[in-house]
Amino acid sequence: MIALSNVTKRYPGGHEALRNATLTVERGEMVFLMGHSGAGKSTLLKLMAAIERPTSGKVVVNGENVGSLRARAIPYLRRNLGLVFQDHKLLFDRSAFDNVMLPLNIQGYDRRDAARRARAALDKVGLLGHEKALPITLSGGEQQRLCIARAVVHRPAVLLADEPTGNLDTAYAAEIGELFRSFNQVGATVVIATHDLQLAERLMPRLITIASGRVDTRTAEAA
């Protein structure tokens, strides 16, 4: 599903976030990218979602070489992905429901069909009672769950999450973990960048460890 080979990412100014990274994620797998902050986990996710392009090497997602994708094709790649951000990136000028509607509006879903799917996604993350609430009135955990609802509402094949439990206490983190597990169980490929060891112990995913821009080769391939 996702394959990186010899990927190096160097930022302007010379900082090398990744060096020669090679890893694969199989379809339907759940994988954690583990490492300290600054190890290059976020960069890996950004490369997979074509938010950044690799300096060298190849990033293949769903059979497409993401690194050399034309700008016009990138939106269609992203529609197969669900992105969960550490800072949620919710839109604070509209209700929870409208936030979840956004990906469906972008993809031109029929309004009634979209509303049904949005409610289903909100229900799934336990926020159906808050659909009219503005995100600012939600707690940190609720905001994160809203972000997840938005990421899965269009049923993407791949879910990419960057530190989804970063600012949450353990109880909230456990809830979020269960959500990811359930999406994985219905067939979604899930890649989570985190340094939350407790979460890893709970979900028992395959772990890929990264330290200062290098992927530990022993963990890079599925066993």
Partner: peptide
């Protein structure tokens, strides 16, 4: 800016 960033991240085309 935020709205544009977010919509871009979740698959909005330039046209959208």
């Amino acid at each position: 800016r935020e709205e544009i960033e977010v919509t871009t991240l979740i698959g909005a085309t330039d046209g959208f």
